[in-house]
Amino acid sequence: MARIRRRDESVEVLVDRRERAALLQILERLEPMLDESTWAKPRAYEEEELEQEFRRLVGSDLDDSRSSDVARMRSSLESDGPILLSSDETWGWLRALNVLRLALAERLGLDEDGWEDRFSQRQHRRPPLATLHLLSWVQEELVEALAVP
């Protein structure tokens, strides 16, 4: 079972080969959803003109930032040996995990708090909800590891 823990100034992600493969497969499946997701790419302004201007200013940088975070997470998972993340790398994972979770949740129509109660235990254990729970677990563990003083 995967474990995530603080190790000196780094965060160590302990995953075996099977878990790495599962996470890489999830990244591959979810990343294309980012382009279409309004949750992963929210509006900044209600007014259309201002929104267009904001997109012109930072839209491509935000897209690049999201792609780069996912790419760095993939690169860490593909590397041999233990995964030791610096603080910056851990933040990259956190950002990637959050936008991927948003894109998946949007696709699943989980648009209200309390969505967990809409599903049976069995449904929670099967894809795609199990995927969402796994990504949530990794993100929560990373936050906890990073929070260690």
Partner: peptide, 18 residues
């Protein structure tokens, strides 16, 4: 404020300006 919102968006938070 736009920089702040862009940073929040990059972290996956739903943020707007008004």
């Amino acid at each position: 404020a736009e920089v702040t919102v862009a940073q929040l968006h990059a972290h996956g938070l739903q943020a707007t300006l008004a």
